[in-house]
């Protein structure tokens, strides 16, 4: 028996909206500790990793670990039927479920929707991601980072991110010209302006902006984003989800051949 009830169902809707352009089908692994999901994009350039802790759910029960293979496209069709204020419950009684039940309830419990989504059997190609001590960590407004990526992607497809003790520089070079945006440490009490840099070792890495713009669809999940980098390592972009868990994106760098 598996049942997970999320009080703020809108969070689940936002998560699916944030990943639906990146991955087509995913395995959600349910265990006693909560839900986790890991999937690569079709080109194997990016990887998304979701972890939702059981104590972030209104009700959570998972008698034994199960894997739920979902088509993101079909999942988002069903989630379109959930109101932003609804609670969302996932449920199945079977051990090897062929479908997953969804219940959407409005606040007054006066409207209850029930859907059943057919499940897929997907080979789980999960990667072992070691807990990395990143040498450069940037915490900043997710809206601001999203804006920087959008603006720079009109000049070039790739951005070079260079960190130093007191600032991070986003540089682009394209046919029309070049540009850079430098953001300094800023302990402002305004969220949108605050920038925390923890730079143990400076890094200089290059990434495809197309992927960063896809990751930034997760801005609605958290007002802050963290960029985690080490030389010759994928960038890890993390959106923490209050009281529930985190959505992480990993992006492989581009290297000059």
């Amino acid at each position: 028996m598996f049942e997970a009830k999320l009080q703020q169902g809108v969070i689940f809707k936002k998560i699916v909206d944030a990943i639906k352009d990146l991955v087509k089908s995913v395995n959600i692994d349910a265990s006693t500790s909560g839900l986790s999901m890991q999937a690569m994009d079709s080109a194997h350039v990016a990887l998304v990793s979701l972890k939702l802790n059981e104590n972030g759910f209104k009700d959570y029960r998972c008698d034994r670990p199960i894997t739920l293979g979902l088509s993101i496209e079909n999942l988002s069709k069903i989630l379109k039927c959930a109101g932003n204020d609804d609670t969302i419950t996932l449920q199945t009684d079977e051990e090897e479920p062929s479908s997953l039940k969804f219940f959407f309830e409005n606040q007054q419990a006066s409207k209850i929707s029930e859907f059943s989504l057919n499940l897929m059997s997907l080979d789980s190609e999960s990667l072992g991601i070691p807990d990395t001590d990143y040498s450069s960590v940037i915490q900043m407004s997710s809206a601001e980072f999203s804006r920087i990526c959008k603006e720079l992607s009109s000049i070039s497809e790739t951005v070079e991110i260079e960190t130093s003790k007191e600032s991070v520089k986003f540089s682009v070079q394209g046919d029309i010209g070049a540009g850079s945006i430098t953001v300094k440490n800023n302990q402002s009490d305004k969220d949108v302006d605050r920038v925390d840099l923890q730079i143990d070792q400076p890094v200089k890495l290059t990434f495809a902006l197309r992927y960063l713009n896809m990751f930034n669809k997760a801005v609605s999940l958290s007002s802050t984003v963290s960029l985690n980098m080490s030389e010759e390592n994928p960038l890890m972009v993390e959106y923490k989800i209050d009281d529930l868990g985190s959505l992480r994106f990993y992006l492989a760098p581009k290297i000059s051949d």
């Binding site: 080109a43 194997h44 990887l47 999960s126 492989a252 290297i255």
Partner: peptide
């Protein structure tokens, strides 16, 4: 120019 590396070049399949 730069060439794009793959994520599974950095993390090993479980």
């Amino acid at each position: 120019s730069q060439c794009q590396t793959c994520i599974d070049g950095y993390y090993l399949l479980n």
